[in-house]
């Protein structure tokens, strides 16, 4: 495992910790899209079907369990926890995420590495992860101002994607038979979705001002 990949996994982990911190410390999930969180839970459940069939490393297995449990816990909290539930911006979080699930599944049936149960679900999870941030970005755009922890959550999530791209470039040059075009192209699409957010994030950071997304 190269340094970019490790740094990517760690920023991914940090993003989840920041989100958990926000929810636990403020007992609020305002600014967070439940739809995006539901999509991530589906992403991890679909992708890690191999948890019990393909052992890669202790690191891999532990991270998989952490991602599944944390994503399910966040959804549970936003749906069931009394105080957290009350702070949910339901009227701003109206993106029809079921369409994304359907479209990604159909696409996975058409484009996959192998036509097996696990491989189709793996491809589905890759496509769904690429677009799962959309409801979150739409919510932020609608609400305009973004609180610190929410901004940092999305920033770390975007950083994770950018580092994974560096990881693929590194692997492409260092591994003889590295061809992961499904993951790479989806990853590029996913990272491109953050471009706008990153632009305003760096602007606010440079000017030392609160993060504001123009409508």
């Amino acid at each position: 495992m190269n340094a970019f990949r490790l740094a990517g996994d760690i920023t991914h982990l940090i993003s989840i910790l920041v989100l958990l911190l926000k929810i636990y410390a403020t007992k609020s999930c305002s600014g967070i899209s439940l739809k995006t969180q539901e999509l991530y839970a589906v992403v991890f459940l679909a992708r890690y079907l191999d948890l019990f069939t393909d052992f890669i490393s202790v690191y891999n297995s532990v991270m998989k369990v952490v991602f599944i449990l944390s994503s399910v816990a966040i959804v549970w909290c936003m749906r069931r926890h009394r105080a957290v539930k009350r702070s949910y911006d339901k009227e701003l979080d109206t993106f029809r995420h079921y369409y994304l699930v359907g479209a990604c599944f159909v696409f996975a049936l058409l484009v996959h590495e192998k036509f097996t149960f696990q491989e189709v679900f793996w491809a589905f999870s890759i496509y769904l992860e690429a677009v799962a941030i959309i409801p979150q970005l739409v919510l932020l755009q609608r609400s305009g101002n973004v609180d610190n922890l929410t901004g940092q959550y999305v920033f770390f999530l975007g950083a994770y994607r950018a580092l994974y791209i560096l990881n693929w470039i590194y692997r492409y040059f260092t591994e003889a038979k590295f061809s992961r075009w499904i993951a790479c192209i989806s990853g590029l699409v996913q990272t491109a979705l953050y471009a706008d957010f990153f632009y305003y994030y760096f602007l606010s950071w440079k000017n030392n001002a609160k993060l504001n997304l123009p409508a």
Partner: peptide, 10 residues
């Protein structure tokens, strides 16, 4: 790392 069949990334 080695990557024969399964997906080694998260």
């Amino acid at each position: 790392g080695s990557e024969p069949e399964g997906h080694d990334e998260l």
